[in-house]
Simulated scan of single mutants.
Amino acid sequence: MNTIVADGFSRRATLALYLREAKYEFLRVLRSPAFSVPTLVFAPMFYLLFGVLLNHGNVQAASYLMATYSVFGVMGPGLFGFGVGLAMDRERGLLTLKRVQPVPALAPLLAKVGMAMIFAACIGVMLVALGMTLGGVNMQASQVALLLCVDILGVVPFCALGLLIGTLASGNAAPAVVNLIYMPLALLSGLWLPLRMMPEVIQTIAPVWPSWHLSQLALKIIGQDSGRPAGMHVAVLLGFSAICLFLAQRRLQRH
């Protein structure tokens, strides 16, 4: 009986540590407007310009860009939250400090993932609201729910990529490295313009990028994807995440 009570208390204490770490991570991000404001605003702002104003009356374009800009938006919290945040924490010695504290090893990383998912959910909700009110997009409740799930869960591969970047780049170099990866990935995956409007070579290599696979899952919900099976896209994203996490873990073990 005492063992059961002790185990229950231990689980509650561990859960409290995870929740406390997530709370502090979220508060830290909110107190950094240089990160939180652009992350939340860029994708909806670009959608207003390209999806609503420049394609006024074109519901198909508004639907396509709503889905792809949601993917563009959710890439940011994962890449910048991990890529820049982890690089700075590592350089300042915060990771070393966390290791000697009575905190589960995964707590800081899971807190960052939770933060990225919250930002992804906010971005997805804003884009769906803009699309359905100003863009003329017509979606059923089930489609909205599925798109938000893709956005929230789709941030994980980019958290993994950001984690890898954060283990490789210095704190000063990380923002530039992330931008050098973030913007080309968005362009080459057809997140800003449909791939059919781009050179054939870009269309051919698009399946190489994880952002293309995530965008295909989002576009499948509104019936504008390339027609490839969803399982293939999910498998590629899971494999990509696993590779990035494996390489990042090896790098972290050396520090």
Rank of each mutant, 00 (worst) to 15 (best):
I4W: 11
A6K: 12
A6F: 11
G8F: 02
G8Q: 10
G8C: 07
S10I: 09
S10H: 12
R12N: 10
L15N: 14
A16H: 14
K23L: 15
V29D: 12
V29Q: 13
L30H: 05
P33F: 04
F35R: 07
V37Q: 04
T39Y: 01
T39N: 08
L40G: 05
V41Q: 03
F42Q: 09
F42T: 15
M45I: 11
L48F: 12
L49C: 04
F50C: 03
L53W: 15
L54N: 11
L54K: 11
N55K: 07
H56F: 15
H56G: 10
N58T: 10
N58F: 04
V59L: 05
A61I: 03
A62N: 08
A62E: 08
S63Q: 10
L65V: 00
A67S: 06
V71Y: 05
G73Q: 08
P77A: 09
L79T: 07
L86T: 14
R99I: 00
R99A: 14
P104I: 09
P104Y: 05
L106H: 12
L106I: 12
L110D: 10
L110G: 08
V113G: 07
A116K: 05
M117A: 14
V125S: 09
A129W: 13
G131W: 04
N138L: 08
M139Y: 04
M139L: 15
A141T: 11
Q143G: 11
L146K: 04
L146E: 06
L148W: 10
V150R: 00
I152Y: 06
I152C: 05
L153W: 10
G154E: 07
G162T: 09
L164S: 12
L164Y: 14
L168S: 06
A174I: 06
A176R: 00
A176G: 08
A176H: 05
N179L: 10
N179V: 00
L180P: 01
L180H: 00
L180K: 00
M183W: 11
P184R: 04
L185E: 02
A186E: 05
L187Y: 11
L187K: 00
L187A: 13
L188E: 01
L188F: 14
L188Y: 02
G190P: 01
G190K: 01
P194D: 00
R196M: 04
P199W: 05
E200W: 05
I202V: 15
Q203H: 01
Q203E: 08
Q203A: 07
I205K: 00
P207W: 03
P207T: 02
W209Y: 15
W209D: 04
P210F: 13
S211Q: 08
L214H: 06
A218L: 03
L219M: 07
L219R: 01
S226Y: 00
S226W: 02
A230C: 05
M232R: 05
M232N: 09
M232A: 12
M232T: 14
V234H: 05
V236F: 15
F240V: 11
F240P: 01
F240L: 06
S241F: 11
S241M: 14
Q249M: 13
L252T: 12
Q253D: 14
